Amino acid sequence: MNAKKSGQIVARFIVYLTGLLVMSLGIVLLIVADLGATPWDVLHVGLYYQLGLTIGSWSVIVGIVILTVASLISKEFPKMGAFLNMVLIGVFIDLYLLLPFMQTPSSLAGQIVMFLFGIIIYCYGMGIYISAQFGAGPRDSLMIALTSKTGWKVGRVRSCMEVVVLMIGWQLGGPVFWGTVIIGLAIGPLAGKALPQCQMATDRFLASLKKQVYTTIDKEKDRGVS
């Protein structure tokens, strides 16, 4: 029994970590495309411009504040995955930005392609890590808490959050361009589509893995009897 439970935890953690890596890549692609970052990263970059440190560091610091607010709204203590999210996302962002080939494309067409891939990768990375149910990260914990509190759809809540954060980041001097507006409007609907799709895929993966474990155990029992 413990072996089965442990196996599921390991599998879920792999899904969780994969989601964080994918989402971080999407964030960095959007930043590097230089057509406008996500509203949250407009805030992070704005804070970086004003106060120093690194973009990843501000992602962690802002995450702590947001997670605290989400916990107060939901009246629930955050899961360990939420704390891991704060640290890992910030670390992954800084590491991706250090890669020598992570450069802004020389043509506008290349920038647009990178930008579009960044949006899609970001949303599905978010869906993948949330589907592992290790605990949503600070920003997504707030999204889920507000969705539960208001009864609004995920897309509507996410869109409202993005617009508010965008305005704050803009006032701090963060990189706002036409791409930022598109992201602010598109993230909510795309997240609303990506979350259930990723949850369904992860549930199928975990169910298949669990079935394999049971099959292996049954075979071992048959061998023991024979």
Score class of each variant (00 low, 15 high):
Gly36Pro: 06
Gly36Ser: 09
Ala37Pro: 12
Ala37Ser: 11
Thr38Gly: 06
Pro39His: 02
Pro39Cys: 04
Trp40Thr: 11
Asp41Tyr: 13
Asp41Cys: 12
Val42Arg: 10
Val42Lys: 09
Leu43Pro: 07
Leu43Arg: 08
His44Ala: 11
His44Ile: 06
Val45Phe: 09
Val45Ser: 01
Leu47Trp: 01
Leu47Ile: 01
Tyr49Asp: 10
Leu51Trp: 14
Leu51Cys: 04
Gly52Ser: 08
Gly52Ala: 05
Thr54Ala: 05
Thr54Tyr: 04
Ile55Ala: 02
Ile55Asp: 03
Gly56Leu: 05
Ser57Val: 13
Ser57Leu: 11
Trp58Ile: 03
Trp58Leu: 03
Ser59Trp: 03
Val60Glu: 01
Val60Asp: 02
Val60His: 02
Ile61Cys: 00
Gly63Leu: 00
Ile64Met: 07
Ile64Gly: 12
Val65Lys: 00
Val65Ile: 14
Val65Asp: 01
Leu67Lys: 09
Val69Phe: 10
Ala70Glu: 06
Ala70Gly: 00
Ala70Thr: 01
Leu72Asn: 02
Leu72Lys: 06
Leu72Met: 06
Leu72Ile: 11
Ile73Glu: 08
Ile73Trp: 08
Ile73Lys: 01
Ser74Ala: 14
Ser74Met: 06
Ser74Ile: 11
Lys75Thr: 03
Lys75Pro: 08
Lys75Glu: 14
Glu76Thr: 15
Glu76Trp: 00
Phe77Glu: 08
Pro78Phe: 10
Pro78Gln: 13
Pro78Thr: 13
Lys79Asp: 13
Lys79Ala: 12
Met80Asn: 13
Gly81Thr: 13
Gly81Gln: 13
Gly81Lys: 10
Ala82Asn: 14
Phe83Met: 03
Phe83Ala: 04
Asn85His: 04
Asn85Val: 01
Met86Pro: 12
Met86Gln: 09
Val87Gln: 12
Leu88Cys: 11
Leu88Ile: 15
Ile89His: 07
Ile89Val: 15
Ile89Asp: 02
Ile89Ser: 12
Gly90Val: 01
Gly90Pro: 12
Val91Arg: 00
Val91Gln: 05
Val91Pro: 02
Val91Ser: 01
Val91Glu: 05
Val91His: 04
Phe92Glu: 07
Ile93Asp: 03
Asp94Val: 04
Asp94Gln: 10
Asp94Ile: 05
Asp94Met: 09
Leu95Val: 13
Leu97Pro: 11
Leu98Asn: 15
Leu99Glu: 04
Phe101His: 11
Phe101Gln: 12
Phe101Tyr: 13
Met102Trp: 01
Met102Glu: 04
Gln103Lys: 15
Pro105Val: 08
Pro105Leu: 05
Pro105Ala: 02
Ser106Pro: 06
Ser106Asp: 14
Ser107Tyr: 07
Leu108Gly: 14
Ala109Asn: 14
Gly110Pro: 13
Ile112Val: 15
Ile112Cys: 02
Val113Glu: 05
Val113Arg: 10
Val113Thr: 13
Met114Asp: 11
